[in-house]
Every structure is written in structure tokens, then in C-alpha cells.
Amino acid sequence: MAQLASALVTMLLGVLGCAVYFYGSNILLDKVFPTKSGPAQKVARNLRISNTIRPWLFLGPAVLLLTFYLFYPVIDSIRLSFFDRSGDEFVGISNYVWLFGSDEFFESFRNNMLWLIVVPTAATFFGLVIATMTDRIWWGNIAKSLIFMPMAISFIGASVIWKFIYDFRSGGDAQIGLLNAVVVFFGGEPQNWITIPFWNNFFLMIILIWIQTGFAMVILSAALRGIPDETIEAAVLDGANGVQIFFKIMVPQIWGTIAVVWTTITILVLKVFDIVLAMTNGQWDTQVLANQMFDWMFRGGGDFGRGAVVAIVIMVLVIPIMIWNIKRANAEMEGR
């Protein structure tokens, strides 16, 4: 109960503090430079001043937080990657030399590439297929809602769910994992799926595909509904069949949205960490960069230099998408 009370108080304080800042600073500004009455020339001057100051009152906290939590760390990570495990001594590029010489890195890099190819592709593909089909049936919304549901489940929760599916009982015991039960039912040999090197990666990827397909579906479904009916009707009159309409008329019109979905999932994949941590913790050849980085941060007191190097590899992989995003946003701004 005491915890609940103190939690409530801290919550209130946190939220109130934030509100007090915004109200206080703006009211103060209005008091110091009144703009609602007074002699015209003075008002004009005050207005100029407060119009210069106010944007920064609005933006201040956001800019500070972004700088402290995202911008500065990116710079500092680059610096740390040239320093030793405690971040005190400059060691040149030896962290990079270590990284590119380690088998573990190549294993995680290969796995990451696999994740990057398989997960966005599969999630987008399933999302598109399901979006197309559910738009045509009366219970489509219920189906969508159920397929979208895993989106709300944490990676760690999803890992428990799927670990249960992949569960393996040796010997003649009854299988309680669904996958092995199905295999046994069809006369196969039960397997300990998550320990089979290489293929176990795919069993982990299934979890993320399961989570992300709903996201792809929701967005692509909206894009499909945004296609003007006239173009489809024109194609029908031109004698196209369903498959041709889908690939030649509908898909090209939502190409931009497909790209957005694809890149969004790609970014998520690069950050994926919880699933690997929970399912295998990188054992049996399933290591990925994000988990490797986490490992180096905390393993044996932590090696900040090596952790930072892995972080930078992830960052470099993200940069092309970042540039593409900024270009797209700029084009949009000019379109306004």
C-alpha cells in the first residue's frame, strides 16, 4: 500500500512538474511582454520579442530531452568505441579490429542479415495477403482484429508463448508443445527446435513475424481501400482477371506504403533483442547484434568500448533508412 501511495505521489509530481513548466513559462512571458493591450508601438515590439521567445518555450523540453537521450549518446558512442572497457583510455581502433576478427560478430551479423531479409518480407507479404482477403469477407474486421492482436503483446510475453509451442519432451513422454505434438501426430520424430543450429533462427523469426504481420496488414489494408475504385473498374472493363488486377493495378498504386511498412519493420528488426534474449540468449548460433551488444555491456562488469562498437554497426545499418526518411519528409513538407 505504501508503495502504491508513493508511486501515486511520484506520478503526480512528475506530471504536474511538466504542466507547471509549460503554464508557468508562458504566463510569465505574457506578463513580462504583454501583447493584448497598451500603446500600439509597444505592443508591436513586445509581440516581436515574445514571438521570438515562445517557440523555444514550447520546444525547450523536447529539444533538451532529444539531445540528452538520443543526439549526445550517438556522438558519445562513437567516441567510446575508441576507448577501453571502462571508457577511460584511448585504444585507437583496436575495438574495431577485435570486432571484425571475432567469429561471434560474424555469426550475429549473418543472423541479423537473415532477420533483415526474412522478417520484413514475410510480415509484409502476409500482411498484404491478409489485407486483400479480409477486405472481401463480411467478418473481415474480426479476423483483422485477431491477427492484429499480437501487436499488443510484449516480445518477452510472445517468447514465452512460443517457447511453449516449441517445447520438447525427450523419450516417449507425451509432447506438450504444439509443434512437436503435430509432428508426432503425423508420425515424425519430435525435435528440440530451438537448439538446431541455423534453422532455429527461423523459429525465432516466426515470433516477430507473428507480431508484425498485424501492423503490416492494418496499414496496407488502409492503403488498399484508398485505391480509387475507378481504376479497378477500368481494369475489369479492360478484361483483367483478379490476379492481374492485384499485381498490375493495386500493388503498384500502394508501392509507397509497402516501402514504408517494409522500412518500419526493418528498423524494428535491427533493434530486436528481447526475443533472442528470452529464447536462447544467443546460444546455438542464434546471436544477433543487439543482444551481443547488451551482452558486452553487462558481461563481467561490462566492456563499454566493445559494446559501443557493436552499437555503431547497428547505427550504420540504419543510416540509409534514416536518409530516405528525411528525404521523404522534406518532400512532404514542400508539398504543403
Binding site: 532529444l66 537521450y69 538520443l70 543526439f71 549526445y72 549518446p73 550517438v74 558519445d76 558512442s77 567510446l80 571508457g87 528498423i267 535491427l270 533493434k271 533483442f273 543487439a290 551488444m293 547488451f294 555491456m297 563499454f304 559494446g307 559501443a308 552499437a311 555503431i312 547497428i314 547505427m315 540504419v318 533508412i321 534514416m322 526518411n325
Partner: peptide, 12 residues
């Protein structure tokens, strides 16, 4: 910053 992997930020 939308796409900066937050792993980047952890150590600093």
C-alpha cells in the same frame, strides 16, 4: 532520430 536504435544510447 526516429530510427536511431536506442541501443546506441544505452552506454553513454
Amino acid at each position: 532520430l526516429l530510427v536511431v536504435p536506442l541501443q546506441m544510447s544505452l552506454i553513454p
